[in-house]
Design a protein around this nucleic acid. Sequence first.
DNA 1: TAAAAAATTTAGACTTGTCTAAAAAATTAT
DNA 2: ATAATTTTTTAGACAAGTCTAAATTTTTTA
Lengths: 216, 216
Amino acid sequence: MNTLAEENYLKSIYHLSLNDSNVSTNQIAAALNTKAASVTDMLKKLADKELINYAKYQGVTLTSAGEKVALHIIRKHRLWEYFLVEKLHFKWDEVHDMAEEMEHISSVELTDRLDKFMDYPKHDPHGDPIPDRDGKFKKNELQPITALQVNESGIISGVRDHSALFLQYLEKQQLTIGKKIKVTEIIEYDQSMILEVEQTKIHISREAAKNLLIVI
Amino acid sequence: MNTLAEENYLKSIYHLSLNDSNVSTNQIAAALNTKAASVTDMLKKLADKELINYAKYQGVTLTSAGEKVALHIIRKHRLWEYFLVEKLHFKWDEVHDMAEEMEHISSVELTDRLDKFMDYPKHDPHGDPIPDRDGKFKKNELQPITALQVNESGIISGVRDHSALFLQYLEKQQLTIGKKIKVTEIIEYDQSMILEVEQTKIHISREAAKNLLIVI
DNA sequence: TAAAAAATTTAGACTTGTCTAAAAAATTAT
DNA sequence: ATAATTTTTTAGACAAGTCTAAATTTTTTA
Ligand SMILES: [Mn+2]
Ligand SMILES: [Mn+2]
Ligand SMILES: [Mn+2]
Ligand SMILES: [Mn+2]
């Protein structure tokens, strides 16, 4: 059906589309660790297959066929991440690269049975929503904790940075999905925040705070 | 490390080696549904990587490095087949093609944890032994039921033909792994066999009998 | 609004894995 | 032991996906 490379391009375009409605060649090249010239070549192929809308120099958007493919890959990625953490007991910072391979396993029946086996999880280990077999999911209404004032609270529900380094840092600070946090102080000098999590106080930089998402 | 194509070649060479010590170019081409010329090209690459012993026109054998790679792929193939049948409740004739994709998932840690998750199964759904992480496994001492005389018994433990058609046929006849069978009659005319399985009599052709393996 | 800078595309090349057709080697038959 | 047949390898080509360098277009700056 679609090649591995095509699938990876569609997935990247989907993710980049969440921030910018038109995705540029250079953005895709950066995301996929490749060169702009290679991206241009692939965009022509994807446009021929009517998976993207592409006009030279104008950037791209996914067609609804392309979005469907992208969401199916993302569904598989997140289901396998959930499997790896919940069934095989990997840590949340260990599963992304494995899921990058597993998301390309093609069987739809397998995907649906995996979903059932795990009792239809709604979110992956990083708090990202898992699309159902039709590609539908509830959009997370998450905010960075920098949106909170002193004495306001929220529940940790996602991350903006998925790097192993950040995830490990959060784990060490007990700042994991589902934990309730309260802002006890915002340091005026550098806007860093002091949080209360399960009776302990934790000091995090504004940089980290921007990447930690909560539901209020 | 090794490409998907390289892995498939090594696996085929391993399987063919079980019947013939030296594997020919044409045998590999037939097994992989490709052309002899393509095989020759790949054999040169695998020989350069010291995964096979290859001398022009002489056929090939795996080096011990090559065998190690092949056994690791086969380990993954059989573990995933077991997973698909035991955890996701697929039928034994449905899992092979999915496992052909899943066997290329690279993480060794994932493979070992999957093994543990399923409590270290020794055989896949078709009765084939699952190599451990060092590539070791007990060689099955199986015989086709054609080796039995009238009134002799055995336990169904494997198949020689893995096609969905044969597996579905066996399933329908209740001839599944673990069942005890007794030969009640061998028809002189065509050597077909009448078996007793759980109080019922089943008539199978010699052709089918040759592909059904038992332990005595 | 014209020049400079940045982004994007084109041109041409390379790698992997495949193919067909032709040549060479090995095997089988007479 | 030679001829015929089969097997295997070589030669040359092609598609997918990538790259560098050069050309083109768009955007920014002055
Ligand atoms: Mn991930
Ligand atoms: Mn994730
Ligand atoms: Mn199989
Ligand atoms: Mn099997």
